[in-house]
Amino acid sequence: MSSKDFFKARTILAPTLDIVEEVNNHLMAIIPGGEKLYLSSNSICMDEGNMESQLDLYGLELLNSINYSGLSPHKLILKVGVLVILPRNIDQSSGLCNGTRLQVKKLENPVIECEVLTGNNVGHITLISRMNMVPTNETVPVRFQRRQFPIIVSFAMTINKSQEQTLSHIGLYLPRPVFTHGQLYVALSRVKSKRGLKVLLMNHVGMSANSTINVVYREVFEKIVF
């Protein structure tokens, strides 16, 4: 936990957000030290064309439960030393961009002190404050605003979130197979060499031992001329 170099070039990848949360929660539980809970404040964006009737339809309990990759959770549980990632650009001039990895140093109420682990400002100490975030995910049925610290616990991350990152050590955790075109390729190509790759498969139904599927939509290649 005391070595920032240990975390900055390694991660665990998983195909879905629920598996990522499972891994992060497990690691959080075994990390020493007290935890601190930060709750978000959620409200419907009335200036975004939402009907007043949606106030009753989408209550606070439902808004609090909305969670997807790229949005800070309603219940953000942190400990000193925990690895986190920024889900969006905050200050590009300071290197605080979508995908930047940080390590928590201090937990206060108005701000969280973090050390930058990746990018051009490695070692820089930054203060992260709460900000308003309006989800742009098309699967969310209503436009709402979440006020929360723009960080996500990131010992593990989804395969899709890892795109454009290159790391020295990756653990690929597949309790169930990948499900979209190219997802397995993305996961395996995030690591610099095969020596830094470990894959854990969990009894995939219909698969022989130590094997998994590689999803490829052949329609993608129909119009390619070789």
Rank of each mutant, 00 (worst) to 15 (best):
T118P: 01
S72K: 01
N137W: 12
R176K: 14
L57Q: 12
K36T: 10
L76I: 06
R88K: 03
V178Y: 07
S43M: 15
S40L: 05
N98F: 06
S154R: 00
S211N: 04
R176W: 02
I77E: 03
G81P: 00
S40A: 08
A14G: 07
Y58E: 08
M28C: 09
V20E: 02
F149P: 07
A156M: 02
T212R: 09
G95C: 05
T180S: 10
I19H: 05
L127F: 11
Q145G: 15
L200M: 09
R190A: 04
I85P: 03
L27T: 14
S40Y: 15
V178R: 01
A209P: 11
E52N: 10
L55Q: 05
R101V: 05
R147L: 10
H169R: 15
E52L: 10
F7Y: 11
D18G: 04
P175F: 00
F6H: 06
L86R: 00
V134P: 13
T139L: 12
C97N: 04
I112M: 08
I170Y: 02
I90N: 07
N160S: 09
L39P: 10
L86Y: 03
I31T: 14
L96R: 04
V191E: 00
N98Q: 08
P110I: 08
K75I: 07
P141S: 01
S53Q: 13
L76F: 12
D47P: 07
S2A: 12
G59K: 11
I30A: 01
V23L: 01
Q183P: 01
V205D: 10
D18Y: 09
V140A: 02
V142M: 14
T139N: 12
N109D: 14
I66R: 04
I90D: 08
L13E: 00
N89Q: 09
A14F: 01
L83K: 03
R147A: 02
L197T: 05
Q163I: 11
Y217P: 13
H169D: 14
M202R: 15
T16C: 14
L184G: 02
E115Q: 03
G49S: 03
R147H: 06
Y68S: 02
S41D: 11
S2V: 08
V225A: 15
L188P: 07
Y173T: 03
T11C: 06
E219W: 06
N67M: 11
P177Y: 07
E222T: 05
K105I: 03
Q183Y: 13
S41W: 13
